[in-house]
Structures are given as structure tokens and as C-alpha cells.
Amino acid sequence: MALDDDIALLARQPLLSLMERDALRLLAFAAESRILRAGDVLFRVGEPSDGAVLVISGAVALDSREDGQPAQEIVGPGALIGETALFAAVARPVTAIAREPTQVMRLSRSVMRRVLAESPASAEAIAAAVAQRLQGFVGQLAAVQEALTALERG
């Protein structure tokens, strides 16, 4: 796949689309492309994260349970798995397994940090978007708390 194609794929991600083109170019250049066979495990629930994975083609099953039940979610081309892991070391909340031959692009947190350090405008845009998301989550939590309080009273 050509570098310009990789940049275009990254630019389709809501958070990454906020980055300057040169920053996306650096991120795409440093990304690792992998071809997976059906059944290959990308990572398991609880493992430490080192970045995100963008599905280029194929399908990946995501499941937080290890009980043999059908996957909780199947994602396909364009899905960014583990976006938070681009910015923070977190435990993987799901196991990710290729359901069919699948091509992915691995984006490492260390590269993302270097790219954002070299592109302050991109870093500021992403920080603002993350702050806005957090404010939305806090609002949702407040609404849930109000609903629970109302149930306790009622």
C-alpha cells in the first residue's frame, strides 16, 4: 500500500483527522503493516497496550470474555482498535482475533508521542478533542447519577 493511501486511511479516523498532514505522514511512515490469518490473535484482554491497530481489510472479533461464546463485536475496514492506547498505557479491555485473512496497520504510542512533540498544532487539536470527549462523559455520568438518585428516592 502506498504512503498516500495510508495517510488517507489515518485521516478518516475522527481523532487522527485533526492532525496536520505532515504529522499524519510521519505516523503512516512509521506504522507497521501486518497480514493476519484467520484465528491469529492481535492481543488478549488484560495485556499491556503499546498502541492502536487500524483494520485495513478483513475482520477482527473483539471480546472481553474468554468463555467461548460468540464475539461481542466484529469490526472491519476502517476500525481503529485501542485508540486510547495511542496516548496512555492501559490494559487491553478485549481480546482481538482475526476472523478471516486481515491486514492491519499497527500504530505505536512511542511514535505518536514523537509525532505530536514535533507537531504542536496537532497535539493541541487532539488535546482539545479529548477534553471535549471527557466533558461529554462527565455529563453522561451526571445524568446516570441523577437517574439512580431518583430511583433510590422513588
Rank of each mutant, 00 (worst) to 15 (best):
M1N: 00
A2V: 00
D4H: 09
A8M: 09
R12F: 00
S17C: 11
R21V: 10
R21A: 12
L24H: 08
L27R: 05
A30K: 03
R34W: 09
R34V: 05
R37Y: 08
G39S: 12
D40K: 13
L42Y: 01
L42I: 15
L42V: 13
F43M: 14
F43E: 07
R44A: 15
V45Y: 02
G46I: 09
S49N: 06
D50G: 13
G51L: 13
A52V: 08
I56V: 15
I56G: 00
S57I: 02
V60T: 03
D63I: 05
D67N: 13
G68Y: 10
Q69G: 11
P70H: 14
P70W: 13
P77T: 04
P77M: 02
P77H: 02
G78D: 03
G78P: 08
A79T: 01
A79H: 09
L80A: 02
I81C: 08
G82Y: 03
G82E: 03
E83P: 02
A85I: 12
V94T: 06
A96K: 12
A98T: 02
E100K: 13
P101Y: 10
Q103L: 10
R106M: 14
L107H: 04
R109L: 11
S110E: 14
S110F: 05
V111N: 03
R113K: 11
R113S: 07
R113E: 13
R114A: 08
E118I: 00
P120C: 01
P120R: 08
A121V: 07
A121Q: 12
A121C: 05
A123V: 04
I126H: 07
A128C: 03
A128W: 08
A129E: 14
A129R: 14
Q132K: 15
Q135C: 04
G136E: 13
L141A: 14
V144F: 12
Q145N: 09
E146W: 01
E146N: 11
L148P: 01
T149I: 06
T149D: 11
A150G: 02
A150P: 01
L151A: 14
E152F: 08
R153H: 13
G154V: 05
